[in-house]
């Protein structure tokens, strides 16, 4: 296989992966953040204490988390058709990816929120702050570095999941490696996909860690996030980080 033959395949696969991971990350963050916060707030003794809701949410998250992704994808077929009108292609792969990532991210959010010092919540309550104020001004901003790390982990996990999207014709880098590298013995192409995945994951991890560290430190100069800037909008990683910032 020559490079000119490989190039369009790789390009298409990259776009497919980016499409699936980008959208599912966005959905996971938008839905997982409130879900994670709710998991903490409905706990016994917490602000919105509600044992029944807490149990139900916890169970749903646990079941969704423990489901192997490939099974989730098949199990959700009816739902996928209802949402996208099809069970084949990258749109169809997107639905189970998002559904799988929501509880994943929600658990990470839960852990991050739990780490916020209860004294801060108490302080805001003593000022007359409502539960919503506590969420908006304390829980999210104070756990932001940790939330960004959580989003980074979610993206990396989603890239992993998206490799199985080929099963429903979703395409993507994982699918390419499987079909060409494994089934057709195109070892070269396989190695290139592996390299691309390694580079992409490294960049995402680095950008996520950098943003989290930057926010965590606080107090140095407030200059622009140099490394973060040029990547904005290109990588799903930065998109996720941005959407988290907006929610805060």
């Amino acid at each position: 296989m020559t490079w000119s033959e490989m190039q369009p395949l790789l390009e298409q696969a990259c776009w497919d992966t980016l499409y699936m991971v980008g959208w599912s990350t966005l959905i996971a963050v938008v839905a997982g953040l409130p879900l994670g916060i709710l998991l903490v707030l409905t706990e016994r003794g917490a602000l919105l204490q509600n044992a029944v809701l807490n149990k139900v949410l916890g169970q749903v998250v646990n079941i969704a988390r423990s489901m192997p992704f490939i099974i989730l994808m098949v199990a959700l077929m009816t739902f996928t058709r209802w949402v996208t009108g099809t069970t084949i292609g990258r749109e169809a792969a997107l639905v189970p990816l998002a559904v799988g990532a929501i509880p994943f991210f929600a658990r990470l959010v839960e852990t991050s929120i739990r780490e916020v010092d209860g004294g801060l919540v108490e302080a805001v309550q003593s000022m007359g702050g409502s539960t919503w104020t506590v969420v908006r001004k304390v829980l999210v901003p104070e756990s932001l570095p940790s939330l960004i790390s959580g989003a980074t982990t979610t993206i990396v996990a989603l890239i992993g999941y998206s490799a199985m999207a080929g099963t429903v014709g979703g395409g993507g880098l994982g699918d390419l490696a499987l079909r060409y590298g494994y089934q057709r013995f195109e070892t070269e192409l396989m190695w290139i996909t592996v390299a691309i995945l390694a580079v992409v994951i490294s960049i995402i991890q680095f950008a996520g860690d950098y943003a989290a560290r930057r926010l965590h430190k606080r107090g140095g100069g407030s200059g622009p996030l140099l490394l973060f800037r040029p990547l904005r909008g290109v990588l799903p990683g930065t998109a996720a980080a941005e959407s988290t910032t907006k929610t805060g």
Binding site: G119, L120, E122, S126, P141, E142, L144, L215, R218
Partner: peptide, 13 residues
């Protein structure tokens, strides 16, 4: 009613 705390409880962010 103002309140001050032993561990200050300032928002680090």
């Amino acid at each position: 009613i103002g309140m001050v705390f032993q561990h200050f409880n300032l928002l680090s962010s």
